[in-house]
Nucleic acid binder design. Structure first.
Lengths: 195, 195
DNA sequence: CGTGTTTTATAGTAACCGCTACATATGTAT
DNA sequence: ATACATATGTAGCGGTTACTATAAAACACG
């Protein structure tokens, strides 16, 4: 144990509460007061543990991605490209419709626009979204090498399309779309995919 | 001419400036100071003409939709459902990539999340997005009646899918996706559509 | 010209924003 | 016990927010 007075709250639990606030209100819409109330701590504790609002957001974002990493890993490890995309789209639909979580996707609605003070967060989210496209593309490239996708298919275009469908589902989920609505989007999108 | 001192600014021109600010920063991220500076007026003129920030946003939103109505009308009036969707997706890709405008789509990034004070705006945008899905669905229903779409196709699912692709392109455009990126998404999405 | 009506610019308002100084509490090390 | 190090709660910092009170300016009327 380290020296000094021990921390009276659990960091991961506090991060989960902060994540929920950011997920619901976005980076800009979440106030320090919102966050400290949800986390059950006072501002000095927040700043001592996470630096500032942006640092807290990044930590919460890491936790968000970690919670979704399993779905992506399992989906993309499916034997065929089609199955991988199918699992990814249907899993995302299910996740977005999960009523235990706030509506929508933090990676999309965390900071899609905003004032100058959240420019860095906006760029960070955009970069992470691009990284997720890379993950899909690399899986599809492998599929093409393995003869699992036609020779004339374009993994980059397909990957960006799949990501667009995911982002579109996230927007509709934020607006209140039902689980069935999202599942239908996923199913329809799969028709664009080489069987 | 009406009685009293005449207004010293053009309302529509001021709305265009306000639209650009909201489009770039979103409802929450746009400050009255940002808006008045861009519009070339002082706060009292803004409040006298538009009520409050939300009223100004709604007027700017009307103007935004009016500017895009032509594209939608022309696209959806195409002879076949496939052509209609093709024009809609490709036209949207082109519009989102137009560098004369801010990145992305106001209907999506205007207020996808935010604090309590923009709950009404968030709901308004979600409702307008749903209304645009209705427009597509009605066109596809007609197509099905006319035998232009297969008997076993589902206009509601297809419409929601097309909208999701549009929303997804908007998210990617907000993140800096190129014109070609967006066009490839549109082209790929069309493969999901009954020829 | 004077009167009435509306818009304008100045200069604020109270409330909230992210963030922190400070004193106190609570632990370890000696 | 004493000293040290870190966390905590209170209370409030300067700055920004959306919005407005006020008075002067600019028009149409009689």
């Amino acid at each position: 144990m380290t020296i000094g007075r021990p921390r009276a709250f659990d960091v991961n639990e506090a991060l989960d509460r902060a994540l929920e606030v950011f997920w619901t209100k976005g980076f800009e819409g979440a106030t320090i007061c919102d966050l400290t109330s949800a986390m059950g701590i006072n501002p000095p504790s927040l700043y001592a543990a996470f630096g500032n609002k942006e640092g807290l957001f990044r930590k919460a974002l890491d936790r968000y991605e970690a919670k979704h990493a399993a779905l992506w890993r399992e989906a993309l490890s499916a034997p065929t490209a089609y199955e991988a995309v199918e699992r990814l789209l249907k899993g995302t639909a299910e996740s977005l419709a999960d009523k235990r979580n706030p509506r929508g996707c933090l990676m999309v609605q965390g900071a899609l626009s905003g004032g100058e003070e959240c420019e860095a967060v906006k760029a960070e989210l955009a970069a992470r979204r691009e990284a997720s496209i890379d993950l899909i593309r690399e899986r599809l490239k492998r599929a093409k090498r393995e003869g699992d996708l036609p020779e004339d298919s374009d993994p980059a275009s397909l990957a960006r399309f799949v990501a667009a469908v995911i982002h579109g589902m996230a927007v509709q989920a934020a607006g209140g779309a039902s689980r069935k609505d999202l599942e239908r989007v996923a199913t329809t999108a799969l028709r664009a995919f080489p069987a």
